[in-house]
């Protein structure tokens, strides 16, 4: 007994880590599908046309770019402005 309960079992711990990672992936897929659906889907037709499909591909790429851009820029702002870091780390 180390007071950690479930984490004591290394096999279980590894399992939880992998499943958590898979779950974060799935969650982001749900989120991006929803966001890009709004951007790309007009009226749902009998099949997915290639123009819409391409829109989804670009949408995902640009969404990730945006997320990374914002993260980078926030990091830079944090470095140049000291006091800002306190408000964000709270």
């Amino acid at each position: 007994m180390n007071g950690q309960g479930a984490t004591a079992d290394p096999q279980l711990q590894q399992f939880i880590e992998i499943e958590s990672q898979k779950q974060r992936f799935q969650q982001l897929v749900h989120q991006m599908t929803e966001v890009c659906w709004e951007k790309c889907m007009d009226k749902p037709g009998p099949k997915m046309d290639s123009r819409t499909d391409t829109c989804f591909v670009y949408c995902v790429e640009r969404f990730i770019d945006t997320s990374q851009f914002i993260l980078n820029r926030l990091e830079q702002t944090q470095k140049s402005k000291g006091p800002f870091s306190e408000t964000i780390s709270d």
Binding site: L28, V29, M32, T33, C36, M48, D53, F56, V60, I64
Partner: peptide, 11 residues
């Protein structure tokens, strides 16, 4: 379809 495209692209 959209879900699968998003999943594939992200992956």
């Amino acid at each position: 379809d959209a879900w699968n495209t998003v999943s594939r692209t992200y992956n």
